[in-house]
Each structure stands twice: as structure tokens, then as C-alpha cells.
Amino acid sequence: MLTNVSLQVIPSVPESKIYPVVDAVIDYIKSTGVAHTVGPMETTMEGDLDALLRIVKRAQEICVEQGAERVCSVVKIDYKPGGVTIDEKVGKYR
């Protein structure tokens, strides 16, 4: 069943390092092969909920590996019986 999970990571790093840390997380998300859309404030993923939550967990670890002393994240989950897709929400705008 498809679920949407949006993730915004806010790493505690000097301002000059924020984008490189966030880019490392986005690169990781891309490497997993899950469907995703990168936005200006968050990345929305589509897939199995358990798999997406593992990605969220790994994203925290990546931030720390990239030098963050702390990571605050905003996670949104859209789950419904029968599944939900990114396309059904924003396809008409593409």
C-alpha cells in the first residue's frame, strides 16, 4: 500500500553547511529508488510506510555523519486504506 511521507531535516550546522547536509540526505533518498518529489521546504516520498520510515531514520544519521550536532526534523505522513499517491495530489499541477 502506497503512503506519502514528507521529510524536512533541519541540521544544527553553520549556515554555510546547511545545503550540503540537506543535499546529502536528498542524494540518499534518490539512491533508495523510492518515488519522491523535492520541494523548497521538504521532500515527499511515496512507498511502503515501513521502508519510508527507515529512510527517515537514516536521514537523521546522515546529518550527524555530515557534521550536525543535532537534527530537528518535520515528518508528515499521509496514510489511507487503499493507498495514496503524490500524483493524485499534485498531478494536475504538473
Rank of each mutant, 00 (worst) to 15 (best):
S6N: 09
Y19M: 05
A24K: 10
Y79L: 13
C63A: 12
V75W: 07
E15Y: 05
V75H: 12
T43E: 03
M45I: 06
Y79S: 13
Q60T: 00
M1G: 12
G39D: 11
E61W: 10
D87A: 07
D78F: 13
E15Q: 15
R58Y: 03
K57L: 11
E69G: 15
A35D: 14
L7F: 12
G83P: 07
A68M: 12
V90D: 00
D23R: 05
Q60N: 14
T32V: 02
P14M: 03
I10M: 15
V25S: 04
M41R: 13
D87E: 09
E42K: 08
S6G: 14
L7A: 10
K80Q: 13
Y93L: 14
T32F: 08
G82M: 09
D87P: 00
G47D: 15
V25I: 00
Q66L: 01
M41W: 13
V64D: 06
S6P: 05
R94W: 14
V5A: 11
D23F: 00
P40M: 11
S73H: 05
L7Y: 12
M1E: 12
Y79T: 03
V13L: 01
P11Y: 05
G83T: 13
T44D: 11
A35W: 02
K76C: 10
N4M: 15
P40V: 08
R70I: 07
V21T: 13
M45D: 09
G33T: 02
